[in-house]
Amino acid sequence: MSSPVIELDDVTKVYPLPAGDVVALNGISLSIDEGEFVAIMGPSGSGKSTLLNQIGCLDRPTSGNFFLDGKNIREMDDRELTDLRLSSIGYIFQKFNLIPLLSAYENVEYPYIMKYRKNDDTGRVRDLLALVGIDESLSTHKPNELSGGQQQRIAIARALVNDPAILLCDEPTGNLDTQTGAQIMEVLSDLHRKGRTVIMVTHESEIAAYAERTIVIRDGRVA
């Protein structure tokens, strides 16, 4: 049996603030296997985003260990973490977070160029845009010329371009209407069915219902 792709062992995250330390994660242990579709739920401020940032290698635990594919994140420097974010993790944000200076196509191509130091000549970017349902004619548009749903589709395509092991989504439908949200969830479910590990933060149970497993967080702990 392969070891879990994600393993958190007593992970704590403390934000030191002048008014006193904020314990955002308080000894979380969990493991997620390859190919799982996991929803993380919990009330506002419970530490969902903080947890996802840990899994997404945007941050390191204050204490405890986090293993991604068996490698301990705590021992990595900024360079290595950045490389992981580029190649092993696809991040989808609530606010889409496309790069405003780049067109839809270029936004998807950006991580590819960062990784391979060349333009995509394999047609991968075009295929991904088709996969998430973005018309060719839209690919030259800048993000501010596109609807929220279109932007989120592009963000999903961008997250997939370097074929990451895990797809992380922080409230991917939070800024979308119900119908568009459902369409985005269809795209994510489809990716999961094709074998990708998907971890999604949400506080809507209808959205969480798409996942196979739900982890509930309360006050920085697994409830």
Binding site: G56, L58, D78, R79, T82, D83, L84, R85, L86, S87, Y91, N97, L98, I99, P100, L101, Y110, P111, M114, K115, R158, A159, N162
Partner: peptide
């Protein structure tokens, strides 16, 4: 700043 955050979060080195 936000754009820098996006670039960093999707794997752009310092």
């Amino acid at each position: 700043i936000r754009e820098i955050g996006i670039l960093r979060s999707i794997g752009t080195q310092r």
